[in-house]
Amino acid sequence: MYGKGILKGLGVTLKHFVETYVDDFRRGRKRYGTREGVEYRSSKDVSGLFTVQYPEEQLIIPEEFRFVPFLVYDEGENGEREIRCTSCGICAKVCPPQCIWIHRSEDPKTGRPVPEPAEFYIDIDVCMNCGLCAEFCPFDAIIMDHDFELAVYDRHSNNIYDKEKLLKPASYYQKIRPRNYAAQEKIRQEKAAKKAARARK
């Protein structure tokens, strides 16, 4: 019989439609606006359709979600910023669309290079959020961000991110990617311990 498939499909749609109201009735207000509500509605055993009421509530961002990258700095004891980046330029080399520029800094007296970037630019109108820079960075200094609310009215003055705009503290990194941070921190501590042991010998 022709048209059977269409009827079947429409039946599924109708089922979802009805289930939405049934679910609304059963779970009440808790279904919207709360983290639990969003979590439940994005789980696989949810029944019915749902809409993410975006400005009031957000989808829960998975840890590996990536948007534009940012630079990590560690907070020192006196509140100074210890930038992890050593301006080695590996991220700029692996970047497929070539959106990273780094200016290395030099010691003003001796003229020898200092392992710290003088300038660090990322053109986020070229960046394709692939995450290769974060993948290749040997110092865990560049990490993909979770912040996606970046729309602007003028791209020429806003969308080339400089060092100041890119730098974010390690605590922020820990907040958005707790598992990655813990794993990397473990490796870093092991390395530091090895280095200290070697220095003692």
Binding site: V52, Y54, P55, Q58, L59, F67, V68, I124, D125, C127, M128, N129, F148, E149, L150, A151, V152, Y153, D154, R155, N159
Partner: peptide, 22 residues
């Protein structure tokens, strides 16, 4: 003449909604 630029590759639906709110 562009009014709003939304960065991202691609911007997620929520990022697009943010741009439209802008």
């Amino acid at each position: 003449p562009v009014d709003v630029y939304i960065p991202g590759c691609p911007p997620t639906p929520q990022a697009l909604l943010y741009g439209l709110m802008k």
